[in-house]
Each structure stands twice: as structure tokens, then as C-alpha cells.
Amino acid sequence: MSGHVSQTAASTHSDHTADPWGGGTSPYKISYGKMMMWFFLVSDAFTFSGLLTAYGFMRHKYEDIWPTAGDVFTHFPMYDGHIELAYVAFMTFVLIASSVTMVLAVEAGHRMKKKSVQFWMVLTIVGGAIFVGSQAWEWYHFIHGTEHGAYLLEDGVTVMRHKIDPHTHVLEKDVFLVPVNREGSLTEFSGFREVSGNEAAVMKSKATHIKGATLKHNEYGIPLFADFFFFITGFHGFHVFSGVCINFIIFLMVVEGKFERTGHYEMVEKVGLYWHFVDLVWVFVFTFFYLL
């Protein structure tokens, strides 16, 4: 954007003093609001990084028994079979696309094209709403779980899952997988062991049948997986939701003509920064929660 400095703006501050830190000018050549938005985003990035690192810690600790996201998120609207991660990929695309419409609104604002700003902001809001709706849909399926469910063993922590072929998704009758984390091995990760026949029947008789995931138990395996999923995607979803709300408020201000009077659309740029940040966080959540 350099090279398009407005003459009036430039003359008011650039020749004030030669030393950028000598006062009378912003050393970063950036407006107060935008800089503060950046600082807020850095602090928010710390929060998300903290959450994702905590997730990474637990995931590395329970490396051998951590559920595979590909087994959990297999639903696709109006389709009965299993497609791994297709819907999340769609959600990611929607969010990236809404990031592009946002940046186009910002760009139109730099040319003072009110109509254009309105148009792109509406698309951004629609994209954000689709994303939040998709996330609700995803939570619904995660909370409700699969039709056959799983068994929570006596100890109230360990989950005995049905053995399902990862490729054909066919369930093996009366064969279960139980995490082996009590064998006292010092160096080897132990993973799961198969249980069937009489042993399985005894364990099943003392177990509780569970379906889906809550904060306390998780059909797909270790409850921590569900806890982190709810907390991190929930926190991110809340960011998207508030982003949609703020976008809508700014959109009303655009329609009302406030920024035509102010002479610049910097407010759109600021909410744009927030919106892109939400997209940025999702890129990481997508990788660490769904892909890895």
C-alpha cells in the first residue's frame, strides 16, 4: 500500500521531526486503533497457543491411546456413509473464503466505494454464520455419538470400544478394544488390546453403556479428547460468533454512512484484522485437531 500516501495526511506529520522516536509522530506509521487491535490479537494468540500447547501436552502424554480424528468426524450432511474430514475441510474453505470477502471489503473501503464495502461485508457475515452453524452441527454429532456407542468400565474412566475396521467401517461383533496403560512398561507405548468372548462379557456386565461425548466421558476414547475439543473449538466458535456480531454492527455503520462522513473506512479494516485472526486460529485448530 505504500506509494499511495495521501498528500494531506502525509504533510501533517511526516516533517514534524527527523527522529521517529523524538515525539510528534508515530514511529510505526500506524494509527492508534489499528495498533491496539494488533496488540489485542497478539494477546489472544497467546491464549489460543496456550490452549493448543496444553492439548499437545496431553496428546503426547497419551500418545498411544489418543483417538484418531478420522474415526470421530466422519459425518457429512445428507449422506449416510463415512467420509473422513470432508465436512471440516468444507468449513475451512468457508472460513478462508469469508476471509477473502473481508479483505475485499477492506480494499473497497480504501477506494471509498460504499456499495462495494456493503456487498463484501454481507458475504463475510453469511460465511461466518455458515461456519458457526456447521460447528453447531459438528458438536451435535459429537455429543450424540454413534448408534452402537461404547462401554464405560467399572473404574469410571476407561472406555471399551467396539472394534471397527478403519477401512470398511464394519463393526466386529463382540470384539472390543481396551486401552492398556497399566502394564508397568517403562519404555514401550502399549496402546490397545483386543478383548472378546467370556472376558468381554464379564467386563461388559459391569460396565455402563455410553453414547457420544460429554465433558465426563467420551465414547471415542479418552475423555480429555472431548474436553479439549469442546473447549478449544468452543472458544474459537465464540470468537467467530462475536466476529459475526461485530461485523454486523460495522455493516450497519457502513450502511448508515458513518465512514463516508469520517472520510475513511478504517473501522472495517480493524474488524477485518479480528476476522482474519479468527481464520488464522482455525487453520491451526484444523491441523492439530482434525488432521494430525
Binding site: 495521501s6 495526511a9 508515530s26 506509521k29 475513511h264 478504517e266
Partner: peptide, 8 residues
């Protein structure tokens, strides 16, 4: 010091 117009 107003920099909001710099991006036009």
C-alpha cells in the same frame, strides 16, 4: 497524528 488515510 492520523494515519488512517495513509492506506487509501
Amino acid at each position: 497524528y492520523e494515519y488512517s488515510l495513509d492506506t487509501h
